[in-house]
Amino acid sequence: MTPTQISQIAFYFFAGLAVLGAILTVTVRNVVHSAIFLITSLLATAGIFLTLGAQFLFAVQIILYVGGIMVLFIFVIMLVNLDVALHQLQFNRQKWVAGLLALVLGSQLGVAIWFARAKGSLDIPSGRTGTLSPQNVEQFGLALFEKYALPFEIASVLLLVALIGAVVMTKKRI
């Protein structure tokens, strides 16, 4: 097996897992089971990042989404009453509208991919598949702090504002 083949097998495995996890997340009745399938889906996405050679994104995806956000999700789920959710109606009765929208979106994506294939712009340049760029983190850091320093700083200020806002809103007396 060549590295490209291994990488392709890995991609289809992770992609299938991500889609399966996402479908099960919305169809399963039990909220905690939903959360577990969402974790599966997020982990599979992290795996796709890895096959693309984006090691840093892989780690950040796991640390932030799986290790941080999903833990908080489950934490909140455990604090609320689960029995109520089990007796409620899971889906509302607008499945025809939803199906139509899904069809439109699907055909849009399909047409886009079809045209892109015809133009050849979807082909990945040779030498980039399957090989993990060894300097990924360094390149990422340099790009963030040199080329995109201003957007990065603005984003961090925005996050800081959100952080302080959350504290201010929850605290009765500061």
Binding site: Q55, F56, V60, I63, V71, N136
Partner: peptide, 21 residues
């Protein structure tokens, strides 16, 4: 691994799911 240390931190942070679940 190039990302050795954060890989370890990321993977071991998933162990908590065993405890919660």
């Amino acid at each position: 691994l190039n990302i050795g240390l954060i890989f370890i931190v990321a993977i071991s942070s998933m162990g908590i799911f065993g405890i919660i679940l």
